[in-house]
Amino acid sequence: MHPASKYVLLAVALLFPALASNEYQVYVMATAFVWAIAVYGFNVITGFCGQLNLAHGGFFAIGAYTVGLLTSDAGWNFWPAFIAALFMTAILGFLVGAVSLRLKEHYFAIFTLCVGFIIYLLLDKWEELTHGAVGVRNIAAPDGFGLVNFRETMPVYYLVLFFLVFIIWFTGRIQKSLVGRTFIAIRNGDELAESLGINLMKTKILAFVISTTYAGLAGALYAGMIRFVGPEDGNILLTFNMIMYMLVGGIGTLFGPLIGTVGIVWLTQSLQFLEEYRMIIFGPLLVLLVIFFPLGVCGSFLTWMHRKAQALGLGPKKAKSESKVTTSDQEAKNNA
């Protein structure tokens, strides 16, 4: 992606509250950003590393519940609880990853589907800890240290935006690093990656822990923003939503999760009249996407740009670098 476009995006995001016609729109945008952070995590494990982790929504819920229970029942401040949520999801991510990542492909997807469901059932049934179906109320809002009041929409918007920008920056760093390249090598083939000397298990667990920590971060922010969590926040459908966000935006791309999440959240907003029936549109949309546009908005755009560059710049000077790009086509797409 063109370097300038990042700053344009950032500027639009910073000015959005001024451009929005009412506070509700800012609130919706902040929610979309929270989801986007979780989807970035999903993109690390599924988009980069190629492992479909269907427990991702469960880790989001664990992050949210950690903040919820620590602030409402244990009387903690928001920020310590926030840090605790990150550690909680990282540690649980490590434990779940260490067991589940020994499994490949379908086995991994099914296993994590079950893990996600166990998380949901525990949230719903373990009443002594989680309050069961009633959910957790009176969650503390993020502490502004007397400077800002995060109970209001605008400060929360900028808080979430700050974390989102940080996450995108951090993910970009991962993607460009050697670690990020080993993730992609694993996606392209377990055996091949192993023969290159990549420690499969260690690398996969690292990707998994990064992804669950992102989910925990998003969940913690969500709890501080909505200030109520219930078992439905651990519903497997949320993971399915995240798949859609990621797929629409472009799986394995840096800006795909952002574009997909914001796009679909606003589309959902404009389809409010459909309410629970919106899946009649989104279900087939998901199917059509994987059949016809598996690269998503970002991926398709990058491929198109790439083709254009190839068609234009076939001069003798460029030919060399161009041929290099085509051999590592997939990688080039992901780095862009």
């Binding site: 479909l52 379908h106 997807a109 459908l237 399915f240 798949i243 797929l247 899946m279 009649i280 989104f282 279900g283 087939p284 949309l285 998901l286 199917v287 994987v290 059949i291």
Partner: peptide, 11 residues
């Protein structure tokens, strides 16, 4: 897998 999830949501 993703397409199967799409069918599930639709049905």
């Amino acid at each position: 897998k993703i397409a199967a999830i799409g069918i599930l949501l639709f049905l």
